[in-house]
């Protein structure tokens, strides 16, 4: 079915009692794409993922996954999905190899075929040497790699990853990204949720930012930065309590066309600009003498914070 999206959602809604966890969202994912859901905790990312994974019936709207209706064709859809849940739910009573074996059997994969796949997956997950050990004592990164290997046992058309690297150390994260790149290069369609902006920028061709159950923005990481942020950001740090006063003096920068927007934070000022060096020169011309000056690229994190706010979400 070339051309037909792998996932198609229109007005997709999930309610829990009076809470609208997912509130009439529209999106579609095409074959071979790496698609991301970004958003703070409680934005509705995981609820959306569970509906796509055909383990949570939708409360309203249209949803097609692999051209099928999850309410009616759940087992068929799940048979062609790979799922990496937010929290590892490996079978701790089994060994690494047995985890892959038992999980593969859930998909009715014949034993001989399964054994061949397991060797490849152990190699892919860099776990061949731990294959016959129990899962429980493995490190977090190893468990995560095993969970990803497990999700591939049925050679899925679509891989769903819910916060794949949350809680991992930097080495483990990079090792995992490397595995995900390889899958992407092999043409596996990836759908992931994350609240790591670097992860989204690294992995996603296209993403949506979710907030309060709705989609706040959609596009490629570059396009989103172009639309909601500036090319560069200048971070100015002044002495304690001086931010507000200094911000007032900087308002002229906007009029001079140097800055699009200035954001005042308790400890620093952010000057959003397309020409960082020009903005720094303008600040120096005003003789404000900040404690420190940092010019950096606009990032997805800036987009994210602009769209979803800086308040804490618990």
């Amino acid at each position: 079915m070339p051309g037909e999206p792998l996932i198609y959602a229109r007005g997709l809604t999930k309610t829990f009692g009076s809470l609208r966890a997912v509130d009439a969202v529209d999106f579609s994912v095409t074959r071979g794409e790496a698609f991301g859901f970004l958003g703070p905790n409680g934005a509705g990312k995981s609820s959306t993922m569970r509906m796509i994974a055909a383990v949570s019936p939708r409360s309203g709207g249209d949803l097609r996954v692999l051209g099928l209706d999850p309410d009616r064709d759940g087992p068929t859809i799940r048979g062609r999905l790979g799922v990496v849940p937010q929290e590892d739910n490996l079978d701790l009573e089994l060994t690494v190899r047995e985890n892959l074996y038992v999980y593969g059997r859930y998909f009715d994969i014949p034993r001989r075929e399964l054994r061949a796949r397991i060797e490849r997956l152990l190699d892919f997950a860099q776990l061949s040497e731990r294959a016959d050990e129990r899962v429980e004592p493995l490190s977090g990164g190893m468990k995560r790699r095993l969970t990803i290997a497990r999700s591939l046992v049925n050679e899925p058309d679509l891989l769903l990853l819910d916060e794949p690297t949350t809680g991992l150390d930097p080495q483990a994260r990079h090792a995992l990204w490397d595995r995900l790149y390889r899958l992407k290069a092999e043409g596996v369609t990836l759908v992931l949720t994350t609240h790591y902006m670097d992860e989204a920028e690294q992995l996603c061709d296209r993403l949506v930012v979710m907030e309060g159950g709705r989609i706040a923005a959609e596009g490629s990481p570059r396009a989103l930065i172009g639309r909601y942020c500036t090319r560069e950001v200048v971070e100015l740090r002044f002495g304690p309590g001086e931010s507000e006063r200094m911000a007032a003096k900087l308002t002229g920068l906007g009029g001079a066309g140097v800055s699009e927007r200035i954001e005042v934070l308790p400890d620093r000022l952010l000057v959003y600009t397309d020409e960082g060096d020009a903005a720094v020169a303008a600040v120096e011309a005003l003789r404000l003498e900040p404690v420190s000056v940092l010019v950096r690229r606009g990032t997805l994190e800036d987009v994210f914070l602009r769209l979803t706010g800086r308040h804490l979400v618990d």
Binding site: V55, R78, G79, P85, E87, N89, L92, F107
Partner: peptide, 12 residues
């Protein structure tokens, strides 16, 4: 052990 959570994401 959350065994059934994993099981239910397969065709079972």
């Amino acid at each position: 052990a959350k065994i059934f959570d994993a099981v239910l994401s397969t065709p079972l």
